[in-house]
C-alpha cells in the first residue's frame, strides 16, 4: 500500500516524466514440492506500456525483479570463546527475515537505482533483512549474519544482469529456485526504473506448496501425530523383520 502511495506521489511530483506502466506475468503461479523436487524455474516476462512517446534526453530504462519468501522471525545466536571452548553467548531475534530472497536485474543494482528507493522498497540483498527495534551496530551484525548464512545456503542471492530488456519495451528473466525451498506464499515484485527512480511496479504471487506424498505425510504428522508415530515404528519393525527373513533365506 505504502509503495503504491509513494509511487503515486512520485508520479504526481514529476509531471514531465512520461507515463510508463509495467505489465507482467509468470510462467507459473504455483510451485509443487513433490518427493523428487530438486528446485524449479520461474520465467518472468512482461512489457512496458506507454501512453505517450518519451521526451528527448530521458535516461536508460532498467528492470528489477525481487522474489521474496514468507517473512519469519528467527533467533540468531553468536558464539564466543569462554573458558577455552566456543559457546553461544548472545542471541538476537531478527524479525521480518524472508525465508527466501532473490533479486534479478538488468544491470548492477547500485548503478541503476538510488539508495533511498533501494532501502524503502527492500531492493537488494543488503536490505533483504530488516532489523526492527533499536538499530544498534550490534543488532545489524546479527541481521548481516542472516543474509550471509542464507546466501551460503543458496536461499538469498543477487543476480545482476540476468534480466533481458529488448527495445526498452519487452523484458524477461529465467529465475531458478533452489531445492531447499520452504512452503509458503511468495511475492514477485517487479520494478520499472528510469534515471535511478522507480516509475512503475507490480506484484504477483507464487504459491509454494507440498504436493502428493509430501503433503500427505506432512499433514498426517501434524494432524494425526500419534498415528504417524506408531506408523513410523511399525514400518521400522517390519523393515527390520523383512531384512532378517530375506537374509536368513539367502543364507540357506
Amino acid at each position: 500500500m505504502l509503495r503504491i502511495l509513494i509511487t503515486a506521489i512520485m508520479l504526481i511530483a514529476s509531471p514531465l516524466m512520461a507515463q510508463e506502466d509495467v505489465v507482467v506475468d509468470l510462467s507459473q503461479n504455483r510451485v509443487d514440492i513433490t518427493a523428487t523436487f530438486a528446485g524449479s524455474n520461474i520465467f518472468v516476462f512482461g512489457a512496458v506500456k506507454r501512453e505517450a512517446p518519451l521526451p528527448e534526453g530521458t535516461g536508460p530504462l532498467d528492470v528489477a525483479i525481487v522474489i521474496e519468501g514468507p517473512l519469519e522471525t528467527v533467533t540468531v545466536r553468536r558464539k564466543e570463546k569462554k573458558l577455552g571452548i566456543w559457546v553461544n553467548t548472545d542471541s538476537v531475534e531478527v524479525h521480518e527475515a524472508p525465508s527466501f530472497f532473490t533479486i534479478a536485474t538488468t544491470r548492477p543494482l547500485v548503478e541503476m537505482l538510488n539508495e533511498g528507493d533501494r532501502r524503502d522498497y527492500a531492493i537488494g540483498l543488503d536490505f533483504a533483512v530488516r532489523p526492527q527495534g533499536p538499530s544498534e551496530e550490534d543488532v545489524e551484525s546479527f541481521a548481516e549474519a542472516v543474509i550471509r548464512i542464507r546466501q551460503d545456503d543458496g536461499l538469498y542471492s543477487q543476480r545482476e544482469g540476468i534480466v533481458n530488456l529488448t527495445e526498452e519495451t519487452l523484458f524477461e528473466a529465467d529465475i531458478s529456485l533452489p531445492a531447499n525451498l520452504v512452503e509458503g506464499d511468495y511475492n514477485v515484485r517487479i520494478y520499472l526504473i528510469r534515471d535511478k527512480n522507480i516509475v512503475s511496479d507490480a506484484t504477483v504471487g507464487i504459491a509454494v506448496r507440498k504436493a502428493g506424498l509430501e503433503a500427505w505425510l506432512y499433514n498426517l504428522s501434524r494432524e494425526y501425530a500419534l498415528l504417524y508415530g506408531l506408523l513410523s515404528i511399525f514400518v521400522a519393525l517390519a523393515a527390520g523383520y523383512g531384512a532378517s527373513e530375506i537374509f536368513r533365506r539367502l543364507k540357506r
Partner: peptide, 14 residues
C-alpha cells in the same frame, strides 16, 4: 575448541 568459521547461527522462531 577450534574457532568456528561462522560465529553466528540461525535458530527457528522467536
Amino acid at each position: 575448541l577450534l574457532m568456528p568459521s561462522e560465529l553466528f547461527s540461525i535458530g527457528a522462531g522467536g
